[in-house]
Amino acid sequence: MALMATTTGKSDKLAHLSACIGRVADKRDKSAFAELFDHYTPLIRAYSLAREPGADLVADELVQEVMTRVWLKAEKYNAKLANLNTWIFTLARNCRIDYLRRNSRYATEIDPTDIFNEMEDEGPGPFQMVQQNKAQQSVREGLEQLPQEQAEVLTKVYLEGKSHQQTSEELKLPLGTVKSRVRLALKKLEVLVTR
């Protein structure tokens, strides 16, 4: 029962935030934007700090980048294609990649802008939407039940932005073990599409 209550609470909150992004898009509503800021900024900062603990200035810079895009791209956000949390995650991920590229000691000529779409151009049909929502629910519940060693590699890869190689060095595990833990975790979360 407790789990159901929090899940309902979360989806109410998400529905409210989605209404806020709609008001930003349609009316350039700054109070709606402030609500989005209050909700997402602590998560965006936490995401940045996961990669660079203690780097508050970097975290603030990421917030500025992401929230600026939220303001400018609100019109492009389509709730039918991705839920708002996931859109914010992809924005934060893309801004972080861009920041790292601009501030890296090792130059690359590759511009990530066209590599990572912020929104799929082609959305799923209504049937797929229902499937997706179900799948997202199972991801949420699955994460809570993931064995510690699998949750650890997912955290390294997704939140700390570590490559498989870096993860294997930090956890002192063979590269193959890191990859198989990622694979097992995804299997548990039921995000693997069977072909």
Partner: peptide, 24 residues
């Protein structure tokens, strides 16, 4: 593309579980 959307959900859910770090 559809697999990717699911994988993005994984990142999104992991992000929601972080301990919030409030901005000034």
């Amino acid at each position: 593309g559809q697999r990717l959307q699911q994988l993005n959900h994984v990142g999104s859910e992991l992000m929601q579980q972080l301990k919030p770090a409030k901005a000034s």
